[in-house]
Simulated assay, not measured.
Amino acid sequence: MEITQAKATLDSKAKFCLDLLPGKIIDIQFTNPLTVRFKLTLIGYEAGKYLILKYPPQAKNSQYSDVLKEGNGAIVRYIVEGERGECVAFSTTILAIAVRPEKLIYLSYPKQIESRQLREVNRLQTHIPAKISINKDQSFDSENLLQGIIIDISTTGCRFTVHVNSGFLALKKRQVFVHLLSPIDNEAVVISAHVRNNQMQGNRLNVGIEFAGSEQQKMHNLLAAYAIDIGQ
């Protein structure tokens, strides 16, 4: 993603601080003297001064020493999942590389931040009871369905949230079926979909779901029944 958009606002900088939590995986691209990309773990940062990343394990000994050195520039990208659904990017430079007690990279704190929406269609906040199954033919009342709430929705996808136990395994990126009850006749409506991402927040699992393209008319009708104005 080219960094060509307008300067970030102060509000964007506040969100930036909230988005970057220790342990987050970010993508970093160097272009001098050659183009190299790494996915590195964020250790932490001090707002306005620097960010600290783990040194790439694949850059052993002197490998990439001409790229990973003080003063070289880079572009950092990371994904903000959940309600915002954005790709964030900023330019930075290597301030220093620490070798003890662990090899770390210090990056300059960004002066401007760019973001791009990942979704083509805006989602509206909702509170619709729904269930998810792996098999299409399961009934809405089946105990095997995963029960939760749709907290935002459009004709192309939704965000489904469910309370989970500590031993719960996140849904894999695979085909699923979303089960909802029509508010008109209380009949179950089954939507073919695909899990795109998972995000744990406390004891809740947020699941990003994309509806199958063939289901758009069905979703138009269902959202109209729920009196949800999708602006389409």
Results as ranks from 00 to 15, higher is better:
M1A: 15
T4A: 07
T4C: 06
Q5Y: 13
Q5H: 15
A8L: 13
A8E: 04
T9S: 10
D11P: 03
A14N: 08
C17G: 10
L18N: 02
L20F: 04
L20E: 01
L21G: 02
P22K: 02
D27F: 00
D27Q: 09
L34G: 08
L34P: 00
V36S: 13
K39H: 07
L40H: 00
L40P: 01
L40G: 00
L40Y: 04
T41V: 08
L42T: 05
I52L: 06
Y55M: 02
Y55L: 00
P57H: 10
N61E: 06
S62F: 09
Q63E: 10
Y64G: 05
D66K: 07
D66M: 11
V67I: 15
V67G: 11
L68I: 13
E70T: 12
E70G: 00
N72M: 09
G73R: 06
A74W: 00
V76G: 01
V76I: 08
R77Y: 15
Y78E: 09
Y78L: 08
I79H: 09
E81T: 09
F90P: 07
I94P: 11
I94M: 05
L95Y: 05
Y106T: 05
Y106G: 05
S108D: 12
S108P: 03
P110A: 04
Q112H: 08
Q112T: 15
I113R: 02
E114W: 10
S115V: 10
S115P: 10
Q117E: 01
L118M: 15
R119I: 03
N122E: 08
N122W: 03
R123E: 07
T126W: 03
H127E: 12
I128V: 01
I128A: 03
P129A: 03
K136M: 12
Q138K: 15
D141K: 02
D141Y: 03
L145T: 01
L146I: 14
I149L: 09
D152L: 05
S154F: 06
T155I: 13
T156M: 00
F160H: 11
F160Q: 12
H163E: 13
H163Q: 12
F168A: 14
A170V: 04
L171Y: 09
K173Y: 12
L180N: 07
L180E: 08
L181W: 09
L181Q: 14
I184R: 00
I184D: 00
D185T: 00
E187Q: 10
A193P: 01
H194T: 09
V195K: 02
M200N: 07
M200Q: 04
N203I: 02
I209R: 02
A212M: 06
M219E: 06
H220E: 15
H220C: 14
L222G: 09
L222R: 04
Y226E: 09
Y226D: 11
D229G: 04
